[in-house]
Amino acid sequence: MTKEEFSNLDIGETFILGCRKFKVVEIEVGCNGCFFDDGCGFEGGIGYELQGSYLLPECAKCYRKDKKNVIFKEVEE
């Protein structure tokens, strides 16, 4: 999978980070419910740092090819 493909994972797709599995979930606005929402907002939050290292897909519609906002929910196995 290329960086671009990973950065634009489709809604409903899953990925693994460390020993946890996450699902891409569409949301209208904001970060409520995202596993990586630490209350800092997009700029400066842990999710922002992980995206910069290509460990998380993009979440903001301005960066995604499908122009949809998404969050990441942990999937319990």
Rank of each mutant, 00 (worst) to 15 (best):
C40P: 01
I27Q: 05
G18S: 02
G52H: 05
I46P: 12
G45T: 03
G18K: 05
K21I: 06
L55K: 12
G30R: 10
D37W: 07
K23W: 05
R20D: 09
G52D: 00
L50E: 03
E5W: 04
C19E: 14
P57I: 11
E5Q: 05
S7R: 13
L9V: 03
F36C: 07
E13Y: 07
M1I: 15
E28S: 07
I16W: 09
G30H: 02
V24W: 07
F6C: 07
E49W: 10
G44Q: 05
F72N: 02
K73G: 00
C62K: 15
L56R: 04
K68W: 09
K65S: 09
G41H: 12
K23E: 10
A60H: 15
E58M: 09
K3L: 11
T2I: 11
K3W: 12
K23L: 10
V24R: 02
K67Y: 11
L55E: 13
C40T: 09
F35K: 06
K68H: 08
E49P: 02
C34N: 07
E28W: 01
L50N: 00
K21Q: 10
K67R: 12
D10M: 12
G41V: 03
F36P: 01
N69S: 04
E5F: 08
L17C: 00
V70Y: 08
C62I: 10
E4W: 13
